[in-house]
């Protein structure tokens, strides 16, 4: 039974809307992040006002408990979040995809062993793995946090890559490639990677969001980027003590975090639709 693909027409408008909204949110964070490289309203370490000032024209998001400008800190937080998310997902993607493909191609017992190992690793929360990695290294800094999160994400990516690759390997076009004399490395490059990418990329975007949150959590726990790096997680932690007297200090980094994560997910959804040749045309 086949349903004509034209039925997708109805939802396509909604899809392009998610792409636009995602692009707008992520683009905003990206612009802000790039801007902080050349300009911020105040110096992030400058005591620019009184302590815990309410929002005003001078300090649009108020000031923190030391009197530093909050908007400046949140803008820098965008840069840190995007850096950590991109780098951690890149590490997780490369490591995880390699591992997943190895498992998909491995002989039965090796595949079973790898699958079991991945399942055990996935049972540990990403954050916990990341914390262990940070604890095992010399000290908390930005690159340790990135590496830790990347390692923590890789089993999740690996498991998905394994399942997706196994499904692709069952397809007749893989057998056709083999009988056409295509080598295994070329089959991976030409057929497997492009066909697992749609499924994988959506998951990677999801992982990006999780990485941003996990970085905030690490920083919140004091295991992320040390001061004066204004990670949103550290801002949240610092605002904890004054959350009732000056809630703005906790709300703004929270909004920044949520808007970026939602934006990335919308973007991923929209991109998936565009990347699929079977859905983008007609």
């Amino acid at each position: 039974m086949t349903i004509p693909a034209d039925t997708a027409i109805l939802s396509r408008k909604a899809r392009s809307w998610t792409l636009v909204a995602g692009l707008a949110l992520v683009g905003l964070h990206l612009v802000v992040a790039l801007l902080t490289l050349v300009w911020t309203p105040f110096d992030p370490t400058e005591l620019a006002g009184r302590r815990l000032e309410a929002p005003s024209l001078l300090h649009l998001a108020g000031t923190d408990r030391l009197g530093r400008d909050l908007l400046t800190q949140i803008m820098i937080g965008s840069r840190i979040a995007l850096t950590v998310g991109t780098a951690a997902v890149a590490i997780g993607a490369v490591l995880g995809t390699t591992l997943g493909l190895l498992a998909a191609f491995a002989s039965n017992w090796l595949d079973d062993a790898l699958a079991a190992a991945l399942d055990i690793l996935i049972a540990f929360p990403t954050l916990l793995i990341a914390m262990l990695v940070v604890a095992a290294s010399d000290g908390a800094n930005l690159s340790t946090a990135i590496l830790a999160l990347g390692l923590g994400l890789s089993p999740i990516v690996a498991r998905l890559a394994r399942i997706l690759a196994k499904r692709v390997l069952l397809m007749d076009y893989i057998t056709a490639a083999r009988t056409s004399g295509t080598s295994w490395p070329a089959i991976v490059r030409i057929h497997v990677l492009p066909n697992i990418w749609p499924g994988l990329s959506v998951n990677l975007a999801l992982q990006f969001g999780l990485a941003v949150i996990a970085e905030a959590s690490l920083s919140y726990l004091g295991l992320g980027a040390p001061p004066p790096n204004a990670s949103w997680g550290r801002l949240l932690q610092e605002a904890q003590g004054t959350v009732f007297s000056a809630p703005i200090g906790a709300i703004t980094p929270g909004i920044a975090l949520v808007s970026l994560v939602i934006g990335i997910n919308l973007l991923a959804d929209g991109l998936r639709e565009r990347n699929d040749p079977a859905r983008s045309e007609r």
């Binding site: 007749d172 076009y173 056409s180 004399g181 070329a186 030409i190 492009p194």
Partner: peptide, 25 residues
């Protein structure tokens, strides 16, 4: 093969699909 849906890589253009044996061999 039997199934004309699973025997063609959905992410490749017809030209590349038909040319695969020529390239690989």
């Amino acid at each position: 093969f039997q199934d004309p849906y699973s025997s063609l890589d959905p992410r490749q253009k017809v030209g590349a699909i038909v040319a695969e044996p020529l390239r690989s061999l």
